[in-house]
């Protein structure tokens, strides 16, 4: 590929770019399934809960329930897409299809592969978030499009951070069945306690505190704040800093674990 030999791409980053293209090539055959699964599921949650609770809860924090729910649904859809790709998907690529080991027989390092796959997920998240935004607005949520554009960096950062969380699980998993525990102890708790579906303030104080350690909580807070126009720049940067911290910890840990698994 001529793109890869271009001198503008630093030598260090070229293998990551190759991985990015590899993911893109795979996606050519997968995108239909991806769009159905990752858009229909949040849309069903959005409509199923939105229609039901809108009758019962007139307002949350001054917004109708559908409007309140849309940013949460977008964040949830990112979570499912990224975390599943970082855990289940990466496990298949590393231990079952053995794609990673075949890359590692070239000058490509583990960090390159992680970076390339994360870059791909970041790009994909922009696409799916945009489509969900349009679907939600058609179903009656009143959110700011300018706010959404401002939220794009948060969306990409959230997707990449959750991918790193998934990589940690992959580094720890001994069999593919272990990911049931990711579902039970990471995905569902995040969905429930991040404030995506209900206002975090309805929970007891200790749970609100613990929720601050979940990446999705910060993603939901920043995306919702920007889409509803209830957050200032300082608040957004605060949540992004928290996400960056979680990303740094998880990526380092995952790199360490995967290196051990792949080189012993």
């Amino acid at each position: 590929m001529p793109v890869l030999s271009h001198s503008a791409v630093p030598l260090m980053l070229r293998p990551a770019l190759v991985v990015f293209f590899r993911q893109l090539l795979c996606w050519r055959t997968m995108w239909r399934q991806y769009l159905i699964l990752r858009l229909v599921e949040p849309a069903i949650f959005f409509y199923g809960l939105g229609a039901g609770f809108a009758m019962l809860i007139p307002q949350i924090g001054g917004f109708d329930y559908k409007t309140f729910l849309l940013p949460g649904s977008i964040a949830m859809s990112l979570m499912f897409g990224s975390l599943i790709d970082g855990s289940y998907g990466a496990y298949v690529r590393i231990f079952m299809q053995r794609t990673w080991p075949s890359f590692l027989a070239t000058p490509t390092r583990i960090a390159h592969i992680m970076a390339g796959e994360m870059a791909f997920i970041g790009m994909r998240s922009v696409l799916s978030a945009t489509m969900l935004l349009l679907a939600g607005m058609m179903l009656g949520a009143k959110v700011s499009v300018l706010g959404f554009i401002l939220a794009l960096p948060v969306i990409v950062l959230l997707a990449i951070t959750l991918m790193a969380v998934g990589y940690v699980a992959t580094g720890l998993a001994r069999s593919i069945d272990d990911f049931d525990f990711v579902w039970a102890f990471v995905l569902t708790p995040m969905m429930v306690f991040s404030g995506a579906l209900v206002d975090l303030r309805v929970y007891p104080e200790p749970i609100q505190w613990l929720a601050q350690f979940l990446p999705l909580t910060h993603g939901v807070a920043a995306i919702r704040g920007l889409l509803l126009g209830t957050i200032g720049p300082l608040g957004v940067f605060g949540h992004m800093a928290a996400l960056l911290a979680i990303l740094a910890v998880c990526a380092t840990l995952a790199h360490h674990l995967l290196k051990q698994r792949l080189t012993d």
């Binding site: 609770f53 949350i60 102890f185 579906l197 309805v202 007891p204």
Partner: peptide
């Protein structure tokens, strides 16, 4: 586990509003 989480989240979360 996920049933219990739904029970907790909606029972107490939504229960506070509904």
């Amino acid at each position: 586990i996920d049933r219990l989480l739904y029970l907790f989240a909606f029972g107490f979360g939504m229960g506070a509003l509904v």
